[in-house]
């Protein structure tokens, strides 16, 4: 944790320097990542990955087993390349699951935790660790099973839906106003150039925040005063399947490192 303190101090110094020169936040994030690696040799996100690794291999829960027996789609314990193929249909649950919900499935069904015992503070580092095993690989989700097709279509509808008191909709900003700024950061080109699903879960250095795409989607709704979908529910999974399919072939940077 001493590293985190040092890293944060460095970050705040770099942040001050960065503010005087406005530039593309994507380039800025790349530069900050490089600088951090040069100066401290480690990224804050690496620490989260390590924390997830510990959680993954430790025998935990009422059944006292590790998560090594968990199948993330490529067979029990196979992690490399697993997260770039999520969300996908799992025959054992009969559901399309994303990284977050699959972790939860294994924590409940394999380790024996009760659903309410599954904490975000454990799911997030686990997601970071599992995602990191697919760093550099191309996104490769499929729409094959009927359930995947249904979820894809739901995701597309949700992405373009307008609802709530502020007529909120994902596409309204992330298609119509790509690169325009509301506040500090420009709207990312989620379905296009930014291929957003290729770099989530992500660490955001401007506020020392580790988030999965479920957190990110919920924040989009919440920031606009729209009721949020529940964690692990069909809505964030459907949106991710739609977004991931648009990001197919994009090279994953996992975990992402963002401003």
């Amino acid at each position: 944790m001493r590293w985190t303190g040092l890293a944060l101090l460095l970050l705040s110094l770099l942040g001050v320097l960065a503010q005087s020169v406005p530039e593309d936040p994507r380039d800025e994030a790349k530069r900050q990542k490089q600088l951090l690696l040069q100066t401290s040799g480690i990224l804050p996100s690496d620490l989260i990955v390590e924390q997830g690794k510990d959680l993954f291999y430790t025998k935990r829960g009422p059944r006292g087993v590790s998560l090594e027996g968990c199948d993330f789609g490529l067979g029990a314990g196979v992690l490399q390349g697993a997260s770039v193929q999520l969300p996908r249909y799992f025959a054992d649950t009969g559901k399309v699951e994303d990284l977050d919900s699959r972790i939860r499935t294994c924590m409940t069904q394999l380790q024996g935790f009760k659903p309410e015992e599954v904490k975000r503070s454990e799911v997030v580092p686990l997601a970071f660790f599992i995602a990191a095993q697919s760093d550099g690989l191309p996104i490769q989700v499929r729409i094959a099973a009927p359930a995947e097709r249904e979820m894809y279509e739901l995701g597309q509808k949700l992405f373009y839906a307008r609802s709530g008191a502020r007529d909120m909709g994902c596409a309204t900003c992330h298609v119509s106003y790509v690169n325009r700024r509301s506040g500090v950061l420009p709207f990312s080109d989620v379905l296009g150039k930014d291929a957003s699903m290729s770099h989530w879960p992500a660490y955001r250095y401007s506020n020392d925040q580790a988030w999965t795409m479920e957190d990110r989607i919920r924040a989009c709704y919440g920031n606009l005063g729209h009721p949020q979908p529940d964690f692990y529910s069909p809505v964030p999974i459907a949106l991710q399947l739609f977004m991931a399919y648009q990001a197919n072939q994009a090279k994953a940077e996992l975990p992402g490192f963002l401003r």
């Binding site: 979820m151 739901l154 729209h226 009721p227 949020q228 529940d230 529910s233 069909p234 809505v235 459907a238």
Partner: peptide, 10 residues
Amino acid sequence: KAVQGSGAKF
């Protein structure tokens, strides 16, 4: 049904 299963207010 899927939307209904994603939170009542949502």
